[in-house]
Measured scan of single mutants.
Amino acid sequence: GAPPLPPYSAGGREVTMKKGDILTLLNSTNKDWWKVEVNDRQGFVPAAYVKKLDSGTGKELVLALYDYQEK
């Protein structure tokens, strides 16, 4: 199953993602919540729920390892 959710501390809205989604990583300075862009929406997802990909394009991409439903 998915890892436990860290307390929400990102101070911005969250976004929903599905397992297998490829998201653009915008900011990973917060260790628990990373800012991503998905379907032209920006928001935060739990860092433990995604994995960085080596895209080779200069853009940082992450793979959704679990479904996440915004609150």
Rank of each mutant, 00 (worst) to 15 (best):
V62H: 02
K19G: 04
V36F: 02
A48W: 06
K18W: 07
A10E: 06
V38I: 15
Y68T: 02
L26C: 05
L63N: 02
A64L: 03
L53K: 03
E37Q: 12
K59F: 10
N30S: 10
S28C: 08
E70C: 08
L63K: 06
D21I: 04
K52A: 08
D67F: 03
N27R: 05
E37G: 07
V50P: 01
T57A: 13
R41F: 11
E60Q: 15
S9M: 15
Y66L: 04
E14A: 14
Y66T: 04
G1C: 12
W33E: 00
E60H: 11
Y49H: 05
W34I: 04
L53W: 06
Y49E: 02
A10N: 08
E37Y: 06
V62D: 00
M17I: 15
G11A: 14
K71C: 12
K35H: 12
L61N: 05
Y68N: 01
V38R: 14
L23S: 02
K19Y: 04
P4S: 09
K19E: 06
S55T: 15
T16C: 09
V62K: 00
V38S: 13
T16L: 05
K52V: 13
K59G: 09
T24A: 11
E37L: 06
K31W: 06
K18G: 04
T24F: 10
P46N: 02
W33V: 01
V50S: 01
A2R: 07
T57Y: 12
R41A: 12
N27H: 05
P7C: 12
G12A: 07
Q42C: 09
P46I: 03
L23D: 00
K35M: 15
A2C: 07
P7Q: 10
Q42L: 07
D67R: 02
T24I: 14
E60M: 10
K52W: 08
Y49C: 05
E60S: 13
N27C: 09
L25W: 01
T29K: 09
A48G: 09
V62F: 05
D67E: 05
S9L: 11
P46H: 01
G43C: 04
F44Y: 14
S55C: 11
G12W: 09
Y68V: 02
D67N: 06
E70N: 09
V36H: 00
D67V: 02
A48M: 09
P3A: 06
G20E: 01
A10Y: 06
K35N: 08
L5W: 06
W34G: 00
E14F: 08
D54V: 13
K35A: 07
Y8G: 10
K52P: 09
Y68H: 05
G58I: 08
T29I: 08
A48F: 04
G20A: 02
T29W: 07
G11M: 05
P3I: 06
E70S: 14
S9F: 10
K71S: 14
Q69Y: 15
L63C: 06
G11H: 14
E14V: 13
D54H: 11
V50E: 01
N39A: 13
Q42W: 10
